[in-house]
Write a protein that binds this DNA or RNA. Sequence first.
DNA 1: ACAGGCATGTAAATAGTTACATGATTCG
DNA 2: CGAATCATGTAACTATTTACATGCCTGT
Lengths: 179, 179
Amino acid sequence: MELSATAYVILGMVRKEPRSGYEIKALVDNSTRFFWAASYGQIYPELRRLAEAGLIVGSERPTGGRKRTVYEITADGEEELRAWLRQPPQVLETRDEGLLKLFFAGALTREEALEILRAMRAQRLEANARLRAIGEMKGEMELFPRTVLEGGIEITEWYADWCERMEAQILASPEERSS
Amino acid sequence: MELSATAYVILGMVRKEPRSGYEIKALVDNSTRFFWAASYGQIYPELRRLAEAGLIVGSERPTGGRKRTVYEITADGEEELRAWLRQPPQVLETRDEGLLKLFFAGALTREEALEILRAMRAQRLEANARLRAIGEMKGEMELFPRTVLEGGIEITEWYADWCERMEAQILASPEERSS
DNA sequence: ACAGGCATGTAAATAGTTACATGATTCG
DNA sequence: CGAATCATGTAACTATTTACATGCCTGT
């Protein structure tokens, strides 16, 4: 079958209750997006493919007169999801423009380099605040989503702190010849 | 001009000394790949584009009879690189299949869920070992690359530790109803 | 002689984002 | 009434990976 990881995000999101594409997108944006994002351009076509493969089924559930299709997982879909969850995780990729810039910061003055660390710190603090807000918004959460959320809160905090420490460290080190 | 971040990786890599596409790829794989990867399929076409734009210049430097083109940065290229480095970093994305699986681990037995954490821990420890090996391989490094490398070592350690803590925590918590 | 590394490149496929289009409903 | 949100979708683009092809050079 060979589904993409994004397909499994969808399977996971409709496992507990039927959801529309729009709802899935909103859920992703408040949860997995920090380690696995998905856009409408992926979600809607993927919903169609999963329905064709018989892993989910759609049904019309209009809200008032507004057209709306919700999808729920089938027994095949649940089995497929579980089989995937049992495989050891492979993908682990990061695109971090801040670290990349810091890596090349020898081409800048020290003050400009410190600016990168400050911007990075602000990024982490912002992510941290958003994660905390999500935690407060939702009342009680299930064990695993909560664990992951709290991990996100901890790691963004750690990272912000690292930026602060490195700022101090670089400030204390002698300015190197840039070329 | 609108260059991709990957173009700046190349500019940064040829800033100090002329490099071939092959060397750039090897450098990336030993440094930025942990936060910004690049494949041959990106590097070679990008080298051509950058040369056309006058940001780098290529020259033939065969090794023995083996054809080899090395590229070095131009004054325009340096200015372009520095201008980019001064812009606040934007992109910050992660694709972490482990966290994604952990997020949905409620569909598994607790033992299977713990397996995910163990696999994640192994992933971080492996990354940590590779980073340490890189640090030992290279003798003395410049301030910023070294800072970034040490940050990578610290964070992979922190993460491996988190996995361990979470394993213990989940083991201690009562098994929830999976549906 | 052969394996492994050096070196360059491309085609095809996959993944993913962005921008746009459309239209209904709800709330102030 | 107008703005925001609900809702679905697609086209175009950009990014990126994978697999393949080619061939030389070095060391065993």
